[in-house]
């Protein structure tokens, strides 16, 4: 069996499969199916400084090969995350990534400080939530603001910092370089693509928020292209996500340049998706005769 462990900005993951933020809560729900310690890591539900109720329903609708969601960052706030959810999660042998979102640079910095002495292993800076007017997406679309928020949080935090990028931009490479230049330790991408569905009977949007974030199989090729583009632009590690539903998808993502992957929407379809991807990646790495899965990253030969 090949070595499945990967290291991202100094943090060791036992395998490169991380449950994606917003699809896996704080890990407790899926631990009713299997021990979540089988995963490399978990990126927790996007957390804000104070509790958020989120958007009115309907918050989810099926699309061709995917879903749109408009949850709107419903979360208990960083205080309850630290006091109630994190201790339970830390009992598992799993890398814990806190995904933080805010309305202002100051919000992000305050959250980073609150997490300073916590048992969180890594911070994922969510500057790409499409469902909240000020859920960070405004920070995510301009290189200048990405650099500003990244630099400020980096100054106030002692945790490895991974910046999560939105695909709803003109040039993701420029955004990635801005984050790297401002001190990001890693990048994760892509968040959801903004989309819409309409009920043709009522002629109203299906989602109460009108628009939502598209995820699932439909976005995989877009995600793969963007991960490739970013991989070529930066030197820091890249965590690839967006529509990964099988070990083959995960393998493609790593060949494109990802050091690890996040799996989200696939869990809704198959609660054992992450576990199956880990197993499949192991056999594939073995079949290639590689000693370590890290040898797979960025091995694409472009035409």
């Amino acid at each position: 069996m090949p070595d499945m462990s990967v290291k991202i900005c100094g943090i060791s993951f036992k395998n490169p499969v991380i449950a994606a933020s917003g699809t896996f809560g704080f890990g407790m729900e899926y631990s009713e199916f299997y021990p979540i310690s089988r995963l490399g890591g978990i990126s927790c539900k996007g957390t804000t400084l104070v509790e958020r109720m989120g958007n009115p329903t309907p918050r989810i609708v099926e699309t061709s090969c995917g879903i749109l969601n408009s949850v709107g960052l419903q979360n208990p706030g960083v205080g309850r995350f630290l006091s109630s959810y994190l201790p339970r999660l830390k009992k598992q042998d799993i890398v814990v990534i806190a995904n933080i979102a805010g309305n202002s640079v100051e919000d992000y910095c305050e959250m980073a400080e609150r997490l300073k002495d916590s048992q969180v292993d890594m911070i994922e800076l969510n500057i790409s939530c499409p469902n909240v007017k000020q859920g960070g997406v405004n920070f995510g679309v301009l290189p200048e603001s990405v650099a500003e928020v990244t630099a400020q949080v980096k100054k106030r935090s002692d945790k490895p910092l991974m910046v999560k990028l939105t695909p709803n931009v003109t040039s993701i490479g420029d955004i990635a370089k801005a984050a790297e230049g401002a001190g990001a330790d890693a990048l994760s991408l892509i968040n959801t693509l903004t989309g819409m569905r309409i009920d043709i009977k009522s002629r109203r949007p299906v989602l109460r928020n009108n628009t939502g974030g598209l995820s699932g199989r439909a976005i995989f090729p877009v995600a793969l292209r963007m991960v490739r583009e970013v991989y070529k632009c930066v030197k820091i590690p890249v965590v690839g996500m967006g529509g990964i539903s099988s070990w083959e998808d995960a393998a493609e993502m790593m060949i494109a340049g990802a050091n690890a992957v996040q799996v989200g929407t696939a869990n809704f379809h198959d609660p054992f998706a992450c576990v199956k991807i880990i197993e499949g990646l192991g056999s594939y790495t073995d079949s290639l005769g590689l000693k370590s899965i890290t040898e797979l990253t960025g091995t694409l030969s472009e035409w």
């Binding site: 896996f24 989120g54 329903t57 309907p58 918050r59 879903i67 949850v71 869990n267 809704f268 609660p271």
Partner: peptide
């Protein structure tokens, strides 16, 4: 309610409730 994961992880199928602590 329109549902996502079915196990409580995604927070899509919420219903407005109230108790002594609020809404």
């Amino acid at each position: 309610e329109r549902m996502g994961c079915g196990v409580g992880a995604c927070l899509c199928c919420v219903c407005p409730t109230k108790d002594g602590k609020g809404k």
